[in-house]
Design a binder for these strands. Structure first.
Lengths: 201, 201, 201, 201
DNA sequence: CTTTAAGCGAGACGGTACGTCATGTCTTACG
DNA sequence: CGTAAGACATGACGTACCGTCTCGCTTAAAG
């Protein structure tokens, strides 16, 4: 059920300002190509062809392939909420399942394309880094809430822990192993919450 | 002091068999290019040019860019040993520092290129997955030893935990943040060993 | 000292009529670009940029690149006078030297651009043809005066002869050999006046 | 009756050497495009498309559009012979009629394209100049023969005179007036041979 | 002791995509 | 309605690599 904008009307300039119809068409096209052919088939030419847009129009608004990828990703990701059940363990499990689940349905193909692009494009790398850091910081709220409740030890910076968890997900995404069983997730969260040391019991 | 094979002698066929001199020259060239220009400058053409090899010679032995990258990585990685100090905490810290340290010195540039290549090459993805899984399994020995010593709880499968840790490293590698302070590493290992839950103390 | 109109005042519409300031600015810009970069750098975009005019303003008044070129040429050529010393030989030499001299100083760059443009623009070709024919006809006055004086044979139509001479100049212009020595000009005029045949002496 | 090579066989490399089939196909395509659409439709892309050749193949062998044009011109012009009837007047008339006649049948379209291209491409200008100079020098043989026979005055350099005549032809070509009547040609040659001066009778 | 068969370097081939530029048309906002 | 501004779709530019090919050679193994 693609939401492609298949209006017959010919798109053209609407004056000295960005044409939202073109922007939409380009992002739609980019998303579709990515979904259908992956990063391999993703080229500015192909996007322009499919969107019936001129290459300069794309380059005008997106300086690099990676910039376009990021826009596609952001657009289809929408807002992110972190479950707040009052139980940190459950919240962490929900976090992991939500992330892996989203990646399993289209989002993953796009995000791994972004990561790949960032490995040969310094600007994309910076964008990706900023995104990743921000993401880990904001998801840290799950642990911060636990700390506020006294449920979680207060002598930890939540951020590196969230890096641990999202790193796990990245690893799975990038090696094509997104089908993580609920059991595995529980194992990880349990280990993290309870600690590995036998003396910590 | 690079070990580049700068022999003046003109390389040619040595009969109906693979010429090791060519193989070496190609892998050397590939490694150098990767080190100097990163994945962006890495192309079969460039490798052939630098190695003074014919393109078909490369294609004959390495079916894809990713296959060549993997060979380069394996060649320069050598054997991996996991410290065994009798203290799991120290062993984990050493593991993380060794991995990040190796990536900081050349290895990282190559490995992130491999990850990127794998995102658009199914065969490379399989190779990467196999490598990653094997790696996590073998590094699990650190925890297994702890379990054998009774230092670490025995009701855990070590593998997902090592995925957690290596995932953290992947994340840092792929976002260009390999400069991890010893403090951060300690924090992570401490959290993992001690557990986050305030009741686990 | 170029007479470029560098007025700071912002040019804008002066109502529902052609703005002469814009016209001047555009012609100035076109002339300067042609002088500085030749036909290669001459584009409607470049002219608009330099004249600080909108592209549609140019397209409104000059239907094609060639039309603009012709306007530039006409504007800077001014009236043409043909020397009348009473000696046809001298008048012809003066004619050739004046034409080549004018082309050597800016005019040539523009005119050869016009000729080039006319080769792929039918309208420009017609304009160029009309101009060339008119020019040869009017310069024919040099020979007509000689005929009136009895100095030149009367059984010739002056026009083809002037085509011969101006054709020589075109050839030199279009092959970048405008530096014609006075001796060469004399040779040509002498040959033409005296005839090549040894029996005509 | 186009001599297009319409072989179905797929053209490919024949080793580390120029493929004559490709060269022929490219020149054929270029010539056809020029004949059909003139300089306006002549682009490297269009030639490549029509010749079913890669753009780099064209750029490999012809550094510029003008180089390709010149090759096309030379190929279809073949050898040039200058009539030798023993009568200089007749030889000159034949020379003019042959040149104008050749230009009337395809050759002209190509040559005026070359002239146009040379006006914005310095390298093409040099090539054109060399060609024009060589051509005038070699056609000077017509007058030189007359001088040897004693039919033509010996105190003239033939070259500038031939420039006069070919200049006339260029003028006609570039203004689209190749339909020169035999009478006009006779007039010009007569004037040149007999001289304009009334005292030269 | 020859064939023969494969590997080698070289590099040309038809392609595709790159990122930039100019084209001529369009709409805006302003005067 | 004319203007400056500039976005738009289009398409050519010249370059870099892609993966395939054929060449002319070298050399070890097979006959």
């Amino acid at each position: 059920m693609t939401k492609t904008s298949m209006d017959i009307t010919k798109r053209t300039s609407i004056g000295a300002q960005r044409n939202p119809a073109s922007e939409t068409a380009i992002l739609d096209a980019a998303e579709e190509i990515l979904r259908e052919s992956g990063l391999g088939g993703f080229s500015i030419e192909a996007v322009a062809r499919r969107a019936k847009a001129g290459k300069p129009t794309i380059y005008r608004w997106w300086p690099s392939k990676a910039a376009l990828l990021l826009d596609v990703y952001h657009r289809q990701k929408g807002e992110t909420f972190y479950a707040d059940t009052g139980d940190t363990r459950k919240d962490l499990v929900a976090f992991l399942e939500a992330l892996l689940g989203f990646w399993r349905t289209n989002g993953g193909e796009i995000f791994r394309s972004i990561i790949a692009a960032a490995q040969s494009d310094p600007e994309a790398l910076i964008a990706l880094r900023d995104y990743a850091v921000t993401r880990c910081r904001s998801s840290g709220v799950i642990l911060a809430r636990g700390q506020a409740r006294g449920e979680v030890r207060g002598d930890f910076d939540p951020e590196p822990i969230m890096e641990l968890l999202s790193g796990f997900c990245w690893n799975r995404l990038l090696t094509g192993r997104l089908e993580v069983s609920p059991g595995e997730i529980e194992t990880i969260v349990d280990a993290l919450m309870g600690g590995l040391s036998s003396t910590s019991r």
